[in-house]
């Protein structure tokens, strides 16, 4: 039984890994759309960062420039 579970886990992991792929620089059009932004709404993100930086008593250093184009 243990062997079957291990085999199944291995198959599942390999299937999941097969889904990983490198997005080439010229294929990032969809990723560059506003809807793909992890922060969601800009005002919401602004409020979140305001709270965060007030709590940290420091600002900046939260990310790097660039729009996912691999150019900055």
């Amino acid at each position: 039984m243990k062997t079957v579970i291990r085999c199944l886990a291995l198959i599942l992991i390999s299937l999941a890994l097969a889904g990983c792929t490198t997005v080439q620089p010229w294929e990032r059009g969809t990723l560059a759309e506003p809807g793909m932004d992890v922060d969601g709404h800009p005002i919401d993100a602004y409020v979140d960062s305001h709270v965060y930086f007030s709590r940290e008593a420091a600002t900046g250093g939260s990310g790097v420039g660039g729009g996912g184009c691999g150019c900055n």
Partner: peptide, 9 residues
């Protein structure tokens, strides 16, 4: 030059 509409620079 290679470019795309979503490319900011």
């Amino acid at each position: 030059d290679f470019w795309a509409s979503w490319c900011i620079p």
